[in-house]
Computed example of a mutant assay.
Amino acid sequence: MRIDVEDLHIAYDGRTVVAGAHLIAAEGEITGLVGPNGSGKSSLLRTVYRHLKPVGGRVLLDGTDLRELSPVQAARRVAALPQERGGDFELTVREVVAMGRTPYKRAFAAEDATDRDVVSKALADVGMADHTGRRFTELSGGERQRVLLARAFAQQTDVLVLDEPTNHLDIRHQVELLALLRAQRRTTLVSLHDLNAAASVCDRLHVLHEGNVVASGPPREVLIPALLAEVFGVHAAVVEHPLTGDPLIAFDHRAPADGPVLPRSGPTTARVGS
């Protein structure tokens, strides 16, 4: 299923936060949104999973306006992992993941064998199969993140919308999650702060800056030093990752792009990251 965002305008209290955005998430690809804080990434994603109504433009799923779908129809097509996740579920891990089956159930309908299989697989996929009986409120931030991702998987939608899915995850679970997203091959629209992760996992990137899409294309074409300086305000070199061949961004942590270079003090080591 393909996502088309057409001339999207989003405003809060009369203040425009996204201005005329156009972007595409192709079927079966991972499409990333990157940009500084406040650039409009989360607001744009909220319109795709219908948490927010735009003041102009539209979101199309395979040519159908998202707003023409009923809530149930939309929930069978789009699963979301938002940033505002709500951490007060007085439910077990398994019960939280089973909530993903709601769009397929009639009111008060009992869980069937298909539901049980789907939920079990989703928990196994995120490495939480051994924690089904734990209370959600007892989990660490990273564990909660994985459980909520399993809930999204249990929805069995064609589209995943993920807002900073690697938040709270340690390095190993970040790598596992990103590998899992690639293995899913669902149409995925994801915002990421980590530009190196975005370069590794995304087929296409859209760069947002002050509410506008200022660049779109494959990571290798988009993540260039001039754009990183203009949009993110950093000095950076882009090299080839020695293990994967993906673009690897090495930042100069001594100074922003528009500031003076600060003197080093004491021994130094190479600093590469985001």
Rank of each mutant, 00 (worst) to 15 (best):
I3W: 07
V5I: 15
E6Q: 15
I10C: 01
A11C: 03
D13K: 13
G14M: 04
T16V: 15
A19G: 00
G20M: 00
H22I: 00
I24A: 12
I24V: 15
A25N: 09
A26D: 15
A26P: 01
I30F: 02
L33I: 03
L33C: 03
G35E: 01
P36Q: 06
G38Y: 03
L45A: 06
R46I: 01
R46N: 10
T47F: 03
T47H: 04
V48A: 11
R50D: 02
H51C: 06
H51G: 08
K53I: 09
K53M: 06
K53T: 15
T64P: 00
L69N: 04
L69K: 05
S70L: 07
V72W: 10
R77N: 08
A80L: 12
Q83I: 09
R85S: 15
F89T: 07
F89V: 09
T92Q: 13
A98I: 00
T102D: 00
P103I: 03
T114M: 12
R116C: 07
V119M: 08
A122K: 10
D125C: 04
D125G: 01
V126D: 05
D130V: 02
T132E: 15
R135V: 03
R135F: 12
S140C: 09
G141W: 13
R146W: 08
V147K: 11
L149H: 06
A152K: 07
A152D: 07
V161F: 03
V161E: 04
L162F: 05
E164H: 05
D170R: 11
R172S: 12
Q174P: 04
L177K: 02
A179C: 02
A179E: 14
Q184K: 14
R186K: 15
T187W: 08
T188F: 07
V190P: 05
V190G: 07
H193L: 13
H193V: 12
D194S: 09
A199T: 07
S200N: 12
V201N: 10
C202R: 02
C202Y: 02
C202L: 02
D203E: 11
H209F: 05
G211R: 04
P218G: 00
P219V: 00
R220L: 00
E221F: 00
V222C: 00
I224W: 00
I224Q: 14
L228I: 02
A229Y: 02
G233V: 07
A236Q: 11
A237H: 14
H241E: 12
L243V: 15
L243C: 13
P247V: 11
F251C: 10
P256C: 11
D258T: 13
V261D: 11
V261T: 15
G266L: 14
A270Y: 05
V272Q: 09
G273S: 14
